[in-house]
Amino acid sequence: MSHDHDHTDPPADIALRVKALESLLVEKGLVNPAALDAIIETYEHRVGPRNGARVVARAWTDPEFKAALLEDASAAVAELGYEGRQGEHLQVVENTPELHNLVVCTLCSCYPWTVLGLPPVWYKSAPYRARAVSEPHSVLAEFGTHLPASTRIQVWDSTSEMRYLVLPMRPAGAEDFDEEALQSLVTRNAMIGVEQVSMPGRG
């Protein structure tokens, strides 16, 4: 690749603009740098899709927990220690052989932060937000997901502060797996609904 000496290259420019804004806000006493670090630490390392995987594996192995989760998801996941911003009004939607659930926010990027962390780039992208409600089969196909013709798709457009987490189906062959082994099978994408959970090596 040839050298690019274009000094108006947007990424460099935006990095500088953000740095300048941060300095301005710190100088004016409007933000506390330690608070910024705490926010980043929370979402880079503590709150992420492993939370959701633990919720799903627990629901697969504990019928009482699953019933509580489907009844009042915010309360059920709070018992596992997952509560807070963008998870105040959580709903769990269950996949079955007859029904497959898919979550989108067509207007912005609403997402259940407490159990999945921050959304991936594709979830926030224009094509996903545009097509998930109008052509979900082609969206799923792009993720390599092909459902039987007998499975009906339900799309959840989260326009409000309600947040949706998909409870995927436990894959065939994982009957003997314990909760920890099950957790490792659960992907973030399956909890958004663009994939199903599969056994290792059968991706």
């Binding site: 067509t106 207007l107 937000r129 097509r131």
Partner: peptide, 13 residues
């Protein structure tokens, strides 16, 4: 954006 067309593939990472 719901239902808008011509935006291309999602191309997920």
């Amino acid at each position: 954006l719901g239902g808008k067309q011509g935006l291309g593939p999602i191309d997920p990472e």
